[in-house]
Computed example of a mutant assay.
Amino acid sequence: MRYYRLVEALLADAPAGGLAQLAAMQGYFDQAHASRDFRRYTGIGQAEFRRHLNGIAKLMNTL
């Protein structure tokens, strides 16, 4: 569940505090753990996901 919350937060472009704060807010012990989960399920890192995020990803998350 925390992975899905992490993706939702990334799609919402929140928070301004960075990926470490975002991971902590979703229940991860540290940002490295969140990064491993994210890369395992998506094949890319969180920062790359945020850089390449487009309307299609946001649309797919709302379906």
Score class of each variant (00 low, 15 high):
Q46M: 15
D13Q: 14
E48S: 10
I56M: 08
N54D: 14
M25H: 10
R40H: 08
M60G: 05
A34I: 04
L53V: 04
L63R: 12
T42D: 03
Y28G: 00
Y41P: 03
T62Q: 14
Q46W: 00
F29L: 15
G45T: 05
T62R: 14
F29W: 11
I56F: 10
P15S: 03
M60N: 09
E8W: 09
N54E: 11
F38D: 02
A57N: 08
D37K: 04
H52Y: 09
M1E: 12
G43T: 04
P15I: 04
H33G: 13
M25T: 10
F29R: 14
L6V: 03
I44L: 06
H33T: 15
Q26F: 01
D30S: 13
M1N: 12
R5S: 12
V7Q: 10
R50K: 08
Q26L: 00
A16Q: 09
K58H: 07
S35D: 04
I56T: 12
D37N: 06
F29K: 15
F49P: 00
A24F: 05
A24S: 11
Y3T: 01
G55K: 11
V7M: 11
L59K: 08
G27E: 00
A16D: 11
F29D: 13
R36I: 08
A9H: 09
N61T: 05
G18T: 04
Q26I: 02
M60W: 09
Q26P: 00
A24E: 07
F29I: 12
R39Y: 06
R5V: 06
I56Q: 09
L19Q: 06
N54P: 09
G17V: 06
L6G: 01
V7Y: 06
F38C: 01
M1H: 12
Q31K: 08
H33D: 13
V7P: 03
